[in-house]
Amino acid sequence: MTDYLPEGRRIDTYENLEQLSSLKSLNDAMRDGKILEARATVCDQSHNLIVDQGFMKGIIRREEGAIGIREGKVRDIAVISRVNRPVCFVVKGFTKDSKGNNIAVLSREEAQLRCQKNYISKLKTGDIIDAKITHLENFGAFADIGCGIVALIPIDSISVSRIEHPRERFSVGMNIKAIVKSIDGGRISLSHKELLGTWEENASKFTPGETVAGIVRSVESYGAFVELCPNLAGLAESKEGVKVGEQASVFIKSIIPERMKIKLIIIDTFKYEYNPKEPEYMYQGNHIDTFLYSPENCDKTVISTF
């Protein structure tokens, strides 16, 4: 595991809590250049972050709040949005407030610069990394890949089964794994669907003759595509009144690996409420070069190459 974790993954660890327990331990962390985490409690009028370290407050001045703040490349919302959330930092020194109380002078920017230099710059396409969902947009999900540095998972890279919005798969704060899909001038794009298993791995969970739950993903003149799990969908016979986004109970007529098809019959449909759960990963390695989704004897080849 890398030392440069997404924000929030370090805050409750024994090592982090121990280093935030006293002035001596905080001095030791400063001497050793340790990256620590604590919760930001206030963003003041000057956009400085006040950090609760338990026995002592800390301050992350605006210009130290994130990579790019100094140059105006990153908006202040990158700092403001950290209030009531964990922030990573290194200790740069100590000062006193107007009442004579000690305050630790912290830098989130420095932690991010170290993460960029020692971890992110060394990533290669195909590397599988830890990430944490930070926010969701129509076009994809943004994920913290280390010390608050974010990368995008495009919506079509989240799962094989089509979705209308990333909130169907992810929620803010969810810990996930992702694959480095591309690196363009330091900007990283991620993929996720290849970790959710091949067609055969997912189809093996189901048996003809079963009636199971699914989600209607599209309705065509010839039938409705129903998602059985994030990387698997089948085609159901047309049924009047079926709508995209509904939950469905479906009868499995047949599973045909050589055609990569599952034939279904819709028994009933219900209103569906989004309730994303942490993904179930079928690929457990640290790197992947090629992912063959389709069965080897299938007429159609679906493959990802990193």
Rank of each mutant, 00 (worst) to 15 (best):
T134S: 14
T134L: 08
T134K: 05
F139D: 00
A141P: 06
G148E: 03
I149M: 13
V150A: 04
V150Y: 01
I153W: 09
P154T: 05
I155S: 07
I155Q: 11
D156Q: 15
D156L: 01
S157C: 14
I158L: 12
V160N: 13
R162K: 15
R162V: 06
H165N: 13
H165Q: 05
H165G: 05
P166Q: 08
P166R: 05
E168G: 15
R169C: 14
R169H: 11
F170I: 11
V172H: 00
V172R: 03
M174E: 04
I176T: 07
I176W: 01
K177M: 08
A178K: 11
A178G: 07
I179H: 01
I179C: 10
D184Y: 12
G186R: 10
G186T: 10
R187A: 06
R187Y: 07
S189T: 15
S189Q: 15
L190I: 07
S191H: 02
S191R: 15
H192N: 07
L196D: 06
G197R: 00
W199P: 02
W199D: 03
E201C: 01
N202K: 02
A203Y: 02
S204N: 11
K205A: 12
K205M: 06
F206L: 13
F206A: 09
T207C: 10
T207W: 04
T207Q: 13
G209T: 07
E210D: 14
T211P: 00
V212D: 00
A213T: 05
G214K: 11
I215P: 07
V216C: 05
V216S: 02
R217E: 15
S218P: 00
S218M: 10
S221E: 15
Y222I: 12
Y222F: 15
Y222K: 07
G223P: 10
G223F: 07
F225S: 11
V226W: 13
L228H: 12
C229P: 00
P230H: 06
L232F: 02
A233G: 09
G234M: 02
G234L: 01
L235Q: 10
A236L: 10
A236V: 09
E237S: 12
E240P: 02
V242N: 00
G245R: 01
G245P: 00
E246G: 02
E246L: 08
Q247I: 01
Q247E: 15
Q247A: 15
Q247K: 15
V250R: 12
I252P: 03
K253F: 04
S254K: 09
I255K: 06
I255M: 11
